[in-house]
Write a protein that binds this DNA or RNA. Structure first.
Lengths: 330, 330
DNA sequence: CTGAAAGCGCTAACAC
DNA sequence: GTGTTAGCGCTTTCAG
């Protein structure tokens, strides 16, 4: 800008006004400045603008694992709202690691992001730093997972309702025993989905033995191991409920490997839909979340808070049931 | 910082030195400053630091579609190298849209990113802006796709080699006719994979009729439509080659819907491996890329250029063949 | 309509 | 070992 001003024999402030479309510059001069700037390939230093204005036009997104299509789709939803309004996304992965999560949050603060979208690793941990963020009045919106008791906006899926629907469905199909492959127990979704299953089974009188609750650690590999174990029990349930998309994939692998017949040998239902549910040998009956929608809403809420310092708002998305062919009638 | 300095009765420069671990502050004073800063919840304004030092510690990543697991995994690879060295990722999606790509690149320049990782939408388009970036000496590394003729580092997969391997494999299995579902024709990978197929077929004397080359538009939906069309030809090839992971998914859907038997009715091979290839009814024989590895290498190359202004370097990854059960011997 | 000048938060000479 | 000061690139009063 200084160069431009000098070469055109005007003051930087005039250049600034001209380039930002502010009034107070003659049309003729503005035209000259704008053209000259374009010719020179001038591009404003957003960091400097941000420093001056106290606005960075950057938001931070904290995600457990971008390689999980579920989160990748959420991110796409967010992108779709931020792009048109000129906000940019600083992306951080936590790998479900609380130290990394904390460090990333600190970085985001230092980058002076105007707001933060986060899916916290642990429903209890790192509460204090999130608390601090809220206290600093930095807009914060949770998605997919929350830290209960923190006064923030969020958008989550009705986890308990979703699993409950699955359990009721298999009940109506005549099933009275159920196994479940669970998420990491400390995550919010892990807790909610398991408790939802237990509650629904209890209400309906479905038997769910201790040893049929297997920890899939939220991962494909973990679920693969867990499913193999379950399939080899002599005493096993007639249905298996899998708590997320990636774990469903692991279960599928185990099914193929052990040559289990679905739904003849065992019925399967899953929380989450994903690319693969539909094209599996026995297409998987499930409750689907809408990740892109979730991202979209989360981003919109955040933008609202940034713009107008709006009230916090809570959204609970319904998981919608998709019947396919993985459950037998007995 | 000013507050801290004032409250402790020292100068800001002293605070700066203390907080940055620079010499020239007595241990005692440093300790007091550091503690006080922590208590106050001080966090440095990275924009200001960047403005001063001319280093933002931010890199830009330009990706066609994060919801595609292939790119999501690449991104994870990048994250894994940037995180430990304190660099942050500003993420931009192009949606395969050239205007959006250009706009995003301008933004990244304005954010004064220290380097850019990009998978260009079009192998020819937007050349001039990429050229400009190179001329400005901003480190630029292409991944997955390149713009031929531009002097930059890149890491890509050996597309022609990969498809050639697939074609040779089906040839040895006795196939002499081949159909192919192609990517968007203007993308670099689209061109390379198609030309590779044609070349290999030509060499081996495999017949590939004009109407067996179907445009899958790089998408699941496009490939689904294309495959449905192909499967309904009375005169159809004995093998179908699918040019990427997402399109393979579309093909799978068509297969299920039309109740096509693989490999009895038709044999299938695919470029790319992805979650679903392995768990499909007829597990899909394919050549796999290593997206995470690609991201890792790309990020490392970029970091090298940023750090030591190193020479440009080109990496071509081999696609490795995975035999499964989707090809019949005839 | 245009210019001068202050200052955003920080670092790095340069003094003392 | 500590303070003073200039300045990174920009915007925005305030004068003229």
């Amino acid at each position: 800008m200084k160069d431009i001003a000098k070469e055109l024999g005007v003051n930087v402030s005039t250049v600034s006004r001209a380039l930002n479309g502010k009034s107070g510059v003659s049309d003729e001069l503005r035209k000259r400045i704008v053209e000259f700037a374009k010719m020179k390939g001038y591009s404003p230093d957003l960091a400097a603008v941000g420093l001056k204005k106290g606005k960075t036009k950057i938001v931070g997104v904290l995600i457990p694992d971008i390689a999980n299509p579920f989160f990748a789709q959420i991110l796409r939803g967010m992108e779709r709202v931020f792009y048109p309004v000129g906000y940019h996304v600083l992306l951080c992965s936590t790998d479900e690691n609380m130290e990394k999560e904390e460090e990333n949050l600190r970085t985001l603060l230092s980058q002076r992001v105007e707001g933060i979208l986060a899916a916290p690793t642990d429903s209890g941990g790192n509460r204090s730093i999130y608390k601090k963020i809220v206290d600093m009045q930095i807009p914060l919106v949770f998605f997919d997972r929350i830290i209960p008791g923190l006064q923030t906006s969020y958008v989550i899926t009705d986890n308990e309702g979703g699993v409950s629907e699955l359990v009721h469905y298999v009940y109506e199909k005549g099933h009275r025993t159920l196994g479940v492959i669970t998420l990491r127990s400390r995550s919010y979704t892990g807790k909610m989905r398991l408790s939802g299953v237990l509650k629904a089974c209890d209400e309906l009188g479905i038997l769910i033995k201790e040893e049929w609750i297997l920890d899939g650690q939220s991962t494909q590999e973990g679920a693969y191991q867990a499913a193999k174990k379950l399939f080899q029990f002599k005493d096993r349930p007639t249905t298996l409920l899998v708590c997320n998309n990636l774990m469903m994939l692991g279960v599928m692998k185990a099914i193929k490997e052990l040559n289990v017949k679905v739904p003849e040998d065992i019925s399967i239902v899953s929380f989450d839909d994903s690319y693969w549910n539909e094209i599996f040998d026995a297409p998987i009956t499930c409750v689907a979340q809408e990740p892109e929608q979730m991202g979209l809403i989360a981003a919109t809420l955040l933008l609202n808070e940034i713009m107008q310092n709006g009230k916090t708002s809570k959204t609970i998305l319904k998981a919608h049931f998709i019947e396919r062919q993985s459950v037998a009638k007995i």
